[in-house]
Nucleic acid binder design. Structure first.
Lengths: 110, 110
DNA sequence: CATTCATATGATAAAGTTATCATATATACT
DNA sequence: AGTATATATGATAACTTTATCATATGAATG
């Protein structure tokens, strides 16, 4: 399997805005305005990232009056997240202590 | 499950250097020098990212003479990658056409 | 068709990440 | 101990990504 797809896949989920949107839509479909309110994110920030998620096929949308309703590609996304759930506890503590990943110009403040 | 861990997990894999190292160690354990040669990456680049991968618990190391041998936490990592394999084909094409993810300052050159 | 509310888009400054360079530390061998 | 080879580390410049601002487009309704 193609290496680039893998990395893009992980990249899609590693972004806070996108990940929170996915988590939110995990429960139920929502309009852009609702997403903004629930997550307390700016509208254009949300729209830009929804565009990305839709381009990737993770969410889909339909117009409902003036609102555009976004919903999650549940079956596949949930299956992926559920599987990672099984493993992530093992790594959780160490991930959160990794300077490179937590970053903001590498590790601890001096 | 903690949201941050998730994102850090995805972030760890979304980086080219780290992902290639993981792919390489999927087959067999290797020293830093071997990894550098095989991937044609600079030594400090590899060391920095190995440190990250080890901090996260994805790889472990042991000294063997002057060489430090790194190996993959196979059971768990392989299980995760294998599961994603099952789904990624579905998204592959769209991921690779997503301007936000492919980026270099957003999408297509004008 | 003008207005209002909702969403999308382009450009770019700000923030974040990575590779690289210079150098330090580790290990083994003579 | 001195040298050679292997690996690690800190600082930072170069690069990449993101949020934000300004503005455009879409949809509905009087």
């Amino acid at each position: 399997m193609n290496e680039l797809s893998y990395r893009l896949f992980f990249k899609a989920f590693s972004n806070k805005t996108r990940f929170e949107i996915i988590r939110l839509l995990r429960r139920e479909q929502k309009s852009v305005t609702e997403i903004c309110k629930d997550l307390n994110f700016e509208q254009s920030r949300v729209s830009h990232n929804l565009k990305c998620l839709e381009a990737c096929g993770f969410v889909s949308s339909k117009w409902n009056g003036k609102n555009k309703i976004y919903s999650l590609d549940k079956k596949h996304i949930l299956s992926i997240l559920d599987n990672i759930d099984k493993h992530i506890e093992r790594y959780s503590k160490r991930l959160e202590s990794c300077g490179v990943l937590k970053n903001k110009s590498c590790g601890v403040i001096k």
